[in-house]
């Protein structure tokens, strides 16, 4: 009934919006497959954000709201990256939704 995505021959369950069903299932290949579906090529800059989101979730057990993500990225990765223009440039579908999805996180709380 539920959907799956195939990463290196292994099936991963995703919800109806394409978010990974179980965050602990995540492997980097998940982001590769999801970005390919979106026709987006992942660069080191994308991976910095994905890695940052994983770490944030690990520490606080939620996906950050976009403004919290922006502020936290500014603090940790520099002000040139901690702004919505830069983040939307990387993730055109919205850094909250798209990057969180690639990182295997749930959709940010309060994000519709």
């Amino acid at each position: 009934m539920s959907d799956t995505i195939n990463v290196d021959g292994k099936e991963f369950a995703v919800d109806e919006e394409g978010y990974l069903a179980n965050i602990n299932d995540w492997v980097p290949g998940v982001a590769d497959v999801m970005s390919k579906q979106d026709e987006l090529e992942l660069t080191d800059e994308h991976w910095d954000i994905i890695k940052f989101l994983r770490e944030y979730y690990e520490e606080y057990q939620i996906a950050p709201a976009i403004r919290v993500l922006t502020k936290a990225v500014a603090k940790n990765l520099g002000k040139d990256k901690g702004n919505s223009k830069y983040l939307y440039g990387l993730f055109p579908y919205g850094p909250g939704k798209q990057a969180c999805r690639y990182a295997g996180l749930p959709k940010p709380t309060g994000c519709v």
């Binding site: 520490e59 057990q61 919290v68 936290a72």
Partner: peptide, 14 residues
């Protein structure tokens, strides 16, 4: 159950 105790620690950011 989900342990949401760590989430309280990010409330300052919210």
């Amino acid at each position: 159950m989900k342990n949401f105790m760590p989430t309280y620690r990010t409330l300052g950011d919210y």
